[in-house]
């Protein structure tokens, strides 16, 4: 058991993958986003991006709070990843399937976050996936296999709340099944 006090789910992924959108889709309140001018236009043409973190929350009837953290997308803030990832209930990695570097991004984030939270559920949401193309998901699965683990990889559109809920439900279900196997 971790000494951390808060219950949190971490959304991570490169800039423009939809972390802020995903958190906004399920948070009880509009997420606090520390968006600022994007100085990395060469990598991603987006006027503003999250430089520190996004923070949303889900408040349950019994007073329990689940925090939803979105990690900063720009690489220069990657030192935040470990701070946010440690002690999380699980990590949801969002990727942009239209990015030609998507497999490299998957490898990078999977390696980093499996190192930070190796026993926690790790779910991958692939946005803008090529419709009807199984090969893209096959390639993603092959990357994870090369890292010696398997994780759900779902084609999603995080602008749709039900897609974000699918990712969260899979994370929760993974926790439930483990809990049951342990009991």
């Amino acid at each position: 058991m971790s000494a951390a006090e808060e219950l949190k789910i971490v959304f991570t992924g490169p800039m423009g993958a939809g972390k802020t959108t995903a958190i906004a889709a399920v948070s009880d309140v509009p997420p606090v986003s520390t968006e600022m001018r994007n100085h990395d236009q060469a990598s991603f043409a987006k006027a503003a991006t999250t430089v520190a973190l996004d923070l949303g929350h889900i408040g349950l009837d019994d007073g329990t709070i689940v925090r939803l953290y979105g990690t900063p997308g720009q690489e220069r803030f990657s030192f935040m990843w470990e701070i946010l990832g440690r002690g999380s209930m699980g990590v949801i990695l969002l990727l942009d399937g239209s990015n030609p570097d998507v497999l490299a991004e998957l490898r990078k984030y999977a390696t980093v976050f499996r190192g930070i939270a190796p026993e926690q559920p790790f779910i991958v949401g692939l946005g803008r996936a090529r419709p009807g193309d199984d090969e893209q998901l096959d390639d993603c699965a092959a990357v994870l296999k090369s890292l010696h683990f398997s994780a759900p990889i779902f084609s999603v559109d995080v602008r749709r709340r039900e897609d974000v809920l699918l990712l969260i439900e899979t994370l929760l279900t993974s926790l439930e099944v483990r809990e049951q196997d342990l009991s």
């Binding site: 058991m1 000494a3 219950l7 009837d61 329990t64 926690q120 929760l172 439930e176 809990e179």
Partner: peptide, 20 residues
Amino acid sequence: RQNHAPVPAGGLKQFLRNLR
């Protein structure tokens, strides 16, 4: 697998039920 996340006060099972 060990759960390295904090365990909610009412237990994980109840917490997951509430969150669902």
